[in-house]
Design a protein around this nucleic acid. Structure first.
Lengths: 209, 209
DNA sequence: ACAAAACGGTAACAAAAGTTACATAAGCGA
DNA sequence: TCGCTTATGTAACTTTTGTTACCGTTTTGT
């Protein structure tokens, strides 16, 4: 239902009142808990989610190895859902909430309709495709060209920037998951960084300097 | 100029006569030679190319290492051009003709206009985004999860399928470039495949069984 | 025909990353 | 508090991949 208190919650991209009304009519807000799986490989997606608050971690998985693709944050939607929306494909990635998050979902069938009706929605779609593509390309380059040592430092610096804090709260094991490598490898490299004075290690966190 | 002999040359995606007319009015056909570089990293793109015949190889490069992203073939356009068309970005990939090819180019400024005017063009754009994304994701997975041995075999099998021939004409050095590795590594693995009876090696070509 | 370039084989070694194993310490729940 | 789980440290070893060097053969350009 369209109420004045819900309206402000949709990202400002959707500035056209008419589009906002349609979104609120056809979609709904959902609360997801930390650790909830929103998208699984092979899953058929009939809804399209926009993140209102919180964060969704999107990654690839194969056997027991996983590797980070990107995060979906406030006002963004995810690529797999989008493309599934257009081609009735199933997802090939996983999406898990890293925090308790609020998302807004609506039927994929609306996405195409709106694209023709609302230039702002169309713009949003193209922008999403583009930025997700760029992020994936970045991840690709990093995996294809960089050593694990470099990827690890890049990850830490990105987190620090993103969270605006030099203290990064994560275990070595989880770092290994993010990079698609092994805990022992991560511990080894981190210890090296510490000895070079680049950071300080604590149980469960890393202090960058 | 719009002539009846040129009309059939545009891919059938653009079935709307009006769109075809516009394309032919604003764009032109270009002949490129084998080895010509169409797109360079950092290059500003003010045209959007559609491949009519031949093949464009799109890859990433960093220092002296390069690695294949995908090929642009008949009726397709490339992601970097597309996204550059929409956001005035420069390219971060390279595009080189693997054969003498014919491409159709038109100003990027038209792409946005047409998107609102012609559903078929819009469809083409979204489809391109989607399929390029999928291809990139495939390349990512392969680099992230597979050994070079597996990637090499996958590459050969793909080529065989694509060209509908079990004889693949390529040197070890060029195979190494495609996979972003070293010639000696490729020779070593290929020799192993040969000893396992999976293929037969010739100078400049590989015969799959 | 001749020299130069391209192609492939292979050895020997180096570096990067993954694996196994075991140890200590910190936190946590009953 | 006690026992279990999680987090980390580290050694020793293996596997994978990359590097350098050198060889002979084939192809190509002039």
């Amino acid at each position: 239902m369209l109420t004045s208190e819900l309206l402000p919650k949709l990202p400002s991209v959707f500035y056209e009142p008419e589009l906002r009304n349609e979104m609120l009519t056809h979609g709904k807000f959902l609360q997801v808990n930390k650790g909830d799986t929103l998208i699984k490989e092979g899953q058929y997606l009939d809804f399209l989610p926009i993140v209102i608050s919180g964060e969704i971690r999107v990654f690839q998985q194969k056997e027991d190895k996983e590797i980070l693709l990107y995060y979906v944050r406030e006002g963004q939607t995810c690529m797999m859902s989008l493309s599934a929306a257009y081609f009735n494909n199933t997802s090939t990635s996983y999406g898990v909430a890293t925090d308790s998050s609020e998302i807004f979902v609506f039927p994929t069938s609306m996405a195409r309709e709106w694209q023709l009706k609302y230039p702002s929605w169309n713009e949003f779609l193209i922008k999403t495709f583009r930025s997700r593509y760029d992020e994936l390309l970045g991840a690709f380059e990093s995996v294809a060209f960089d050593s694990i040592e470099k990827r690890l430092m890049t990850y830490l610096l990105n987190r620090a920037t993103q969270e605006n804090s030099k203290k990064i709260i994560i275990s070595h094991q989880d770092l290994a998951y993010e990079l698609g490598t092994n805990r022992v490898v991560v511990s080894r490299i981190l210890k090296g960084f510490e000895q070079q004075g680049k950071l300080k290690l604590f149980r469960g966190s890393i202090q960058l300097r």
